[in-house]
Structures are given as C-alpha cells and as structure tokens.
Design a protein around this nucleic acid. Structure first.
Lengths: 132, 132
DNA sequence: TATGGTGTATTAAGTAAGTAATACACTATA
DNA sequence: TATAGTGTATTACTTACTTAATACACCATA
C-alpha cells in the first residue's frame, strides 16, 4: 500500500497514517475483508515504532473501519454499503455545516456562497486531471 | 463586552477570546477605533492571568485587527472596508475550499453538495430567528 | 505443544502548548 | 516629575501529546 509520510510537517505520524488509510477505505482502494499491512511491517517500512502504527490502527478501529484479530492481523470491517455511505455523509455534513455557518456569520449570501463552492469544486477537479 | 469562556472544553482560553473578539469586529459589534477591554480588567473578569489575554490580543494584532499603544491600551484597527471584506473573503474561501475538496474525495456530486449547503444555510438562519 | 507470526499493555523520554508569577517598560497627566 | 494606568518580557510550572523500548498475550498450525 502506498503511504506517504512527511516526518517534518509537524502532523503526527499516526494521524498521517490514519488519514491515508481511511481515505483508501472510503474510496474503495481497500475493500471489505482486506487485511491491512502488518503493524511490524508497516512500522519497519516507515522506520517508526510499532506502537505508532498500532495507535493509528486503534483509532481506525474506534471509527469502526477496521477490526482486529489479535494474533492474526487487522482487516477492513465488513460494513454494509449503506453504513459506509452514512459515515461519508456525516463527514461531509459536518464540514458543509461549518461552511454554511461561517457564510452566515460573515454575511455572505447563499448565492455568493454557492458561486464560491462551484469555483473551488471545479478548480480542484481540473487540478486532479492535470496531475494524471 | 460579552465573552463566554468554557474552561473545560479543552479549547485554549486565549483562542476562545480571540475568536469571539474577531467575530465582534467582523460583525461591527466592535468598530474602528474602539478601545478593547484592558488586559488586566479582562483577565480579572475571566479569572485568568493577564498574559493569557495579552497573548490573545497579540494574535489579533498579527491579523491586523487591533493595534497596541503601549501604556495606553489596545484599539480596533482603522481598516478600510475593502480590507475587512478581503479578510472575510479569505476566511470564507478557506473553509469553502475544504468543503469542496471533501465533497470530491467522498464522491459527492456538485448538485448534492449544493443541496446540503442550502439545507444547512437555511436551517441555521431559522435557528437564529427562533432564538430572538 | 512448540514456534513464529500477529497485536498490545506498560512505562518512560522528549517536546510543545497553555497558563501563571514576577518584575519591568511605556504613557498620560496632575 | 511622580503616579497610576496601560501592556510586556522573562521565566517556569503543568499538562498533554507523540513516540519509543520492552516485555507480554494471542492465534494458527506444523
């Protein structure tokens, strides 16, 4: 699995690991039942202590995205598609809610706000295309 | 000036102070040239060390929202309306950009996203109305 | 049941952030 | 120029977070 860690960004390693694995589960790069890379293997590859990886995995377990089988390994939880959709919705709902509140507090109209959103949405998509 | 501090939220006191004062400047609750509450007064009122307040004020100064006159006090910076608008734009731009990126990464379509936004926008406005 | 592969609990070291204590510096003005 | 009111620099305490070291616990299976 491809994982990019920036050791000097100040962002904790275990959070970088979490975010990237979560992302892969969300986008089906990692699927139901897939085994995650071994704690020790990943730790060795990233040149980091096993506990750091274990910690990342623990948080993912708390989010119900992975399950541990002690002595065996960690696996992507078998969740119903609807459940995954719900998790995504919550994530999205949360940030879009913040954006809406910020808009109102700053006196940005609904129409203006939507204009901004469209702009960023399409900018990001173009940017992704260019990178391929 | 009304300031509500939650001492147990885990959010640093100086950040709570910053956010609320910034908000008041943005929404004209505090206007150009107004003097901020004295470091010592506010510290005493919030039962907190003066340096904590000073720190909050320092960050607001770095944002160019307030100016210090040592030995005199702190005052809301006289900024041109256009400048204030720009600060607001940056704030808003930032969060709406995050929302757009999240949408794309989660596979939410532009139309869906805008639906969500409208919903939250109007929900929040209704909520505000009810509170008055 | 022994072994080698899994993950984990406990403990501790290092660092950064938040807050506070204290003494100090600047300004207006009586 | 003395004083009372402003903010500040320095220092240090406390706490939480991140990571690591070490020894341990669980499981499959030869």
């Amino acid at each position: 699995m491809l994982l990019e860690i920036d050791y000097h960004s100040g962002v904790p390693i275990y959070r970088q690991v979490m975010r990237q694995i979560r992302q892969q589960i969300m986008t089906d790069g990692l699927k139901e039942g897939d085994q995650l890379e071994t704690v020790r293997d990943l730790a060795a590859r990233l040149k980091v202590n096993p506990m750091t990886i274990s910690k990342a995995y623990s948080f993912l377990e708390a989010e119900n995205l992975v399950e541990r089988k002690r002595g065996v390994g960690l696996f992507v939880t078998k969740v119903k598609k609807s459940q995954l959709t719900q998790i995504k919705s919550e994530l999205f709902d949360n940030i879009i809610n913040k954006a809406a509140i910020t808009a109102i507090q700053l006196g940005v109209s609904e129409e203006q706000a939507i204009e901004f959103f469209k702009k960023h949405y399409n900018d990001y998509i173009s940017k992704q295309r260019r990178q391929k």
